[in-house]
Amino acid sequence: MATSKPRVKVPKTASAGETVVIKTLISHEMESGQRKDKDGNVIPRKIINRFTCEFNGQPVFSCDIDPAISANPYFEFSAKVPESGTFKFTWVDDDGSTYTDEQKIEVK
């Protein structure tokens, strides 16, 4: 099956306490479970059902996802950066697999 490749945009630097904008995309068909194949059988649901963002192990933002979210889910949100550190992004698939990405940010 297709690999789900995440892409993330995080600024490289921020000032201490600054709120920055983060953008994330992951390639995924987000099969809704409502479509039928050509023989009339329901195509089973297979979506990314949860997305989380942590900073140095602390939760920043998360999203519980239903099948109405578009293919290649996109999330844009903000994060307050108290210190230099690492953002960790996690996407959870219905099939149990998880996809992750990490981005460092430096406080100047």
């Binding site: 900073f55 999203c63 979210i69 578009s70 889910p73 949100f77 903000s78 307050k80």
Partner: peptide, 26 residues
Amino acid sequence: GNPNPEVATFNFTALSGTAAATTRMR
């Protein structure tokens, strides 16, 4: 007006800085 009304739930924290988010839906 969708077959199921649920779309998503965004969860924010103090580290969110701002309670704002964007996504794309069907």
